[in-house]
Amino acid sequence: MVIVDVQEVLIPVVWRGTELADRIAVLATKARDRGVPVVALQQVGGEMFDPAKPGTRLAGRLRLQPSDTVIQKTATDGFYRSDLEAFLRSQNVDTIVLTGVATDYCVDATARSAVSHGFDVVLVEDGHAPVRHGDEEAGLSAEQIIARHNRLLRTAVHPGGTIQLRPATQVFD
């Protein structure tokens, strides 16, 4: 299971951030119970994600455990110049359960990169969110952004892997 950028600084600005973090925490517990490794990606770099600032920390609501792996990244794509692929390969992972923030940035980029790296992806359809006000320039609400990205990623063609969508209640049940 890969959790993308659920960090203290982002919880208040993403759509239903607290609810999302709590849903992801439940999924992470289910993953651990089934022996699935839990990886939390942490965006670092730039003013908003200065590692010295407390807001850059991963959200406490995730209830991460010492057995979980934290991988820092500096780009929207969780695989770009990070240890993510090496870690997943070392764990013999072929399918990633993907969740986190933001739908239209790091979740989208990481999902597409995962399949390009040969992984199958189960995107938690109600387990990712954009900023709470959506994309005002495009006239899209947060709900519309989520629906659009779920549709686009479900139908995307990638020769390396597949993307399936499942609601959080059906991912590990």
Rank of each mutant, 00 (worst) to 15 (best):
V131S: 04
P54W: 08
I96Y: 04
S90A: 07
Y80E: 12
Q43E: 13
A25F: 15
P66L: 14
D120A: 06
E136D: 11
Q164R: 14
D22C: 09
V44N: 13
F79I: 05
A138M: 11
M1N: 03
R154M: 09
V122I: 08
V93F: 01
L123F: 01
A25Y: 09
V4Q: 07
D50L: 08
V2W: 07
A111G: 00
K30M: 07
A111I: 00
L152R: 06
R63N: 10
D135S: 13
H149N: 09
G55P: 07
P66N: 10
R23S: 09
E85K: 10
L98Y: 00
Y80W: 09
V9Q: 05
S82V: 08
P66Q: 14
D108K: 06
D108W: 08
L98Q: 02
R63Y: 02
R89W: 05
A28H: 11
A138V: 15
R154A: 14
M1V: 05
Y80A: 08
V9F: 12
I71R: 02
F87V: 07
G78T: 03
R61S: 08
P12E: 10
A86Q: 04
E8Y: 13
W15S: 03
Q43A: 13
L58R: 08
I145Y: 00
H158F: 15
W15R: 02
T103G: 01
L20A: 06
K30V: 03
I24H: 03
E47I: 15
P130L: 08
Q164Y: 15
P54Q: 11
A40G: 11
E19H: 02
V131H: 05
K53D: 10
L64R: 09
V124N: 03
P130N: 02
H128A: 04
E143L: 04
R132A: 11
Q170M: 14
I146S: 00
V121L: 07
D77G: 05
L88G: 12
G139V: 01
T95N: 07
V107P: 05
G134Y: 06
H117Y: 13
R32L: 11
V97T: 05
R81P: 06
L58N: 14
L88S: 05
A75E: 15
K30N: 04
N150L: 07
Q72D: 15
T74I: 11
L88K: 02
D22Y: 12
V70M: 14
G100L: 00
S116Q: 14
V36W: 14
Q65N: 14
A156N: 08
T110Y: 11
V44C: 12
I3C: 08
V121M: 04
Q144Y: 00
D50V: 13
A147T: 10
G161E: 05
A25D: 09
K30R: 12
A109M: 14
T99Y: 01
W15A: 03
G17W: 03
F172H: 02
V157P: 13
E125A: 15
I163N: 06
T56V: 03
R112I: 12
D5H: 13
G134L: 05
K73D: 06
D173L: 13
A28S: 10
F79Q: 01
R57Y: 04
V44M: 09
K53P: 13
A109T: 11
N92T: 15
Y80I: 04
V14H: 00
T56H: 10
H149L: 10
V171D: 00
S141M: 05
A75Q: 14
A138T: 07
V2Q: 03
R34S: 15
A25T: 15
G35A: 08
L64D: 06
T162E: 07
V36E: 15
C106E: 02
L153A: 15
V36H: 14
